[in-house]
Design a binder for these strands. Structure first.
Length: 476
RNA sequence: CGGGGAGUAGCGCAGUUUGGUAGCGCGCCUGCUUCGGGAGCAGGAGGUCGCAGGUUCAAAUCCUGUCUCUCCGACCA
C-alpha cells in the first residue's frame, strides 16, 4: 500500500496530480513533445475502439453512415457562417505554406467540420428525395487551447461528428434529441457514467446553433464535465452554404441541419468517475483486458501451475478478454498492484493450492472482494461477476451524482459545498444572472435539464420570476 | 497574455550559494536464488548537465540571450 502511494498521488492530496499519475501509470497516454498534444497508447486506444464500436452500432441502427471529409478547410468556407467563425476563429490553427510556397488562400485545420461538410452537402442535395442525409465521421480536430489536460482538453483530439440534413424542422429537432439519447445510452451502458441531459443556455450554445443539447457528468472531485453535445442548427448553415432542395410542392427550400459530437474526452470522464487511489477501475464492457490470470509458481509445482493457468485461459478466452500474466521476473504481489493500477475488472489467482483443490481465487477490482470458486463454476462466476461489476460501477456513480446534486433557492448556498457538485435552481433566463454566478463563484450553467421544471418560480440570483430550471457547477 | 516554479541517465532528484571535469534512488541488462499482496544477492550498461554565445587555465556551477515544460490566473462548448 505504501508503495502504491509512491506511484499514484492520492486523490485527497491533489486531484489533478492523481489524474495525471493514473493516466500515465496505467499506460493510457504519454505526453507528446509539443504542448497540448498527447499520444494515446494501445491500452488507451483500445478503450476508444470499444466506444467507437458501441457508437457505430447505434448510429447504423438509426440509418447513419460513416464518411470522411478533408482535414483542411479553405478560409472562405470557414468564414461563411458569421456566428460560427466568430466562435471558433480564436482557436483555429492555419496552414499557410505548401510545398515551400505561400498558399494563395490559407487553410484551417478543422476545429469541427460543419463548414466543409455543408459545402459538400450543397452539391449533393437537389430534391426532397435526397433527404434526409445522415452521415457521421470519425476524425481528429484541432483547437488551439491555452490550458490543456490529457483527454479533457487537448489541442488535437479524436472524436466523431455527425452531420445531418432534413426536410422539416420537426424532423431535424427529433434527430438532435435522438442522437443525444444515443449518447446517453452508450455512456451510461458502456462507460457506466450517469449523466444529466439538458439544453444549453444561450450563452453556452455551440457557435451557430439554434439549440444545443448536452450531457453533463459529475467527476470524482465534484466538477462537471460536458461529455457529449447535439446541436439543432436550424437553417443557419443551410442558408450560409446554400443547402437547398426542391420540395414536393415545387418550392425551393432550405434544409434543416443538425450536428452532434463526442470525443476522447469521454475517456477522461471514465477515469475521473471510476478511478481510485490504486488507479483505474474500468467497466468490463470497455476494458481491454477483462480478466487477468496470475499464476503463483512456487518451486517444483511451477509447471503444473502454469499448465493449469493456461487451461483456464483457454477456457475463458472463448467468451472474455483474458490475459495470462506468467512473467517470471515479477512476484504475484507486484502483478496484483500492476493490474489494479491498469483497472482490470477481475483477477484470477491460481497457485499450487488451487491446482490441488481444482479451484481458483477470484478478486474484484471494484470492491476488492475475493472468493474461491471450483473449476466447474469459473466460467459462469466470471460472467456473473463482470456483469455485477459493470452494474456496481454505474450504481456507485449514480449514487454519488444524486448525493451531490443539491437544490438551492439562492446560488450562494453552493459555497457551503465548496462549489463542488451539481446545484439545481430556478433561473429567470437573463444572461446577467448567469454572468453574476460565474464572476462570483466560477460556476456556469451546465444545462437546463430536459425533464425538470421550476420549483419556486424565483431566480436563484435576482429572485425575479423564473421560467427555467438549471443545473450549475464548476466545470472542466 | 500576466505571475510563480523547473530543465542534470528511461523516471524522480542531489550537486549550482563557495567554478576543479557528474552522483543517488527507482527502472533497465546478465547470473543465481525466489514467487498466495510491490523479492534478495552479485556483476553491468546508460548522461555533449535544454540550446547558443561569453568570462576563465578550467563552467552543470558565473554572465547574456534563447527555447521548452509546468502550476495559478485570464481565455475556452
Amino acid at each position: 500500500m505504501e508503495n502504491v502511494l509512491k506511484e499514484i498521488t492520492p486523490k485527497s492530496v491533489d486531484y489533478s496530480q492523481w489524474y495525471v499519475d493514473v493516466i500515465t501509470k496505467a499506460d493510457l497516454v504519454d505526453y507528446a513533445p509539443m504542448k497540448g498534444f498527447m499520444v494515446i497508447k494501445p491500452y488507451g486506444y483500445r478503450i476508444w475502439e470499444f466506444i467507437q464500436e458501441a457508437m457505430n452500432r447505434e448510429f447504423r441502427a438509426t440509418g447513419h453512415e460513416n464518411a470522411y471529409f478533408p482535414l483542411l478547410i479553405p478560409e472562405h468556407l470557414l468564414t461563411k457562417e458569421a456566428e460560427h467563425v466568430e466562435g471558433f476563429s480564436p482557436e483555429v490553427a492555419w496552414v499557410t505554406m505548401g510545398g515551400g510556397e505561400p498558399l494563395s488562400e490559407r487553410l484551417a485545420v478543422r476545429p469541427t467540420s460543419e463548414t466543409i461538410i455543408g459545402a459538400m452537402y450543397a452539391k449533393w442535395i437537389q430534391s426532397y428525395r435526397d433527404l434526409p442525409v445522415l452521415m457521421n465521421q470519425w476524425c481528429n480536430v484541432v483547437r488551439w487551447e491555452k490550458a490543456t489536460r490529457p483527454f479533457l482538453r487537448t489541442t488535437e483530439f479524436l472524436w466523431q461528428e455527425g452531420h445531418t440534413v432534413h426536410r422539416t424542422r420537426e424532423e431535424a429537432e427529433a434527430e438532435t434529441l435522438q442522437q443525444l439519447r444515443i449518447y446517453q445510452r452508450v455512456i451510461e451502458k458502456e462507460l457506466a457514467i450517469p449523466v444529466v441531459a439538458g439544453r444549453k443556455s444561450a450563452g453556452e450554445r455551440f457557435a451557430g446553433a439554434v439549440e444545443t443539447y448536452t450531457l453533463e457528468a459529475l467527476m470524482g472531485d465534484g466538477r462537471a464535465l460536458q461529455i457529449a453535445t447535439s446541436h439543432f442548427l436550424g437553417q443557419n448553415f443551410a442558408q450560409a452554404f446554400d443547402i437547398q432542395f426542391l420540395d414536393e410542392d415545387g418550392v425551393l427550400k432550405y434544409g434543416w441541419t443538425t450536428s452532434w459530437g463526442s470525443s476522447t474526452r469521454m475517456i477522461g470522464g471514465l477515469i475521473m468517475v471510476h478511478g481510485d487511489d490504486k488507479g483505474l477501475r474500468l467497466p468490463p464492457r470497455v476494458a481491454p483486458i477483462q480478466v487477468v490470470i496470475v499464476p503463483i509458481m512456487r518451486g517444483a509445482e511451477r509447471e503444473t501451475v502454469l499448465a493449469y493457468a493456461t487451461r483456464l485461459k483457454d477456457l475463458l478466452e472463448v467468451k472474455f478478454r483474458v490475459r495470462l500474466d506468467a512473467r517470471p521476473e515479477f512476484t504475484p504481489g507486484y502483478k496484483y498492484n500492476d493490474w489494479e493500477m491498469r483497472g482490470v475488472p477481475l483477477r484470477i489467482e491460481v497457485g499450487p493450492r488451487d491446482v490441488a483443490n481444482g479451484s481458483v481465487v477470484l478478486a474484484r477490482r471494484d470492491t476488492g472482494a475475493k472468493a474461491t470458486v471450483s473449476w466447474d463454476a469459473v466460467e459462469s462466476t466470471v460472467e456473473g461477476w463482470l456483469d455485477e461489476i459493470q452494474r456496481h460501477l454505474f450504481e456507485e456513480a449514480r449514487q454519488r451524482l444524486s448525493e451531490r446534486t443539491v437544490a438551492v433557492t439562492d446560488y450562494r448556498e453552493a459555497a457551503r459545498y465548496g462549489y463542488r457538485g451539481f446545484f439545481t435552481g430556478d433561473w429567470c433566463g437573463q444572461e446577467a444572472c448567469a454572468d453574476q454566478i460565474k464572476a462570483e463563484t466560477g460556476m456556469t450553467i451546465r444545462c437546463l435539464p430536459l425533464d425538470a421544471h421550476p420549483m419556486t418560480g424565483r431566480c436563484v440570483v435576482c429572485q425575479e420570476d423564473a421560467s427555467e430550471r438549471m443545473v450549475f457547477a464548476r466545470a472542466y
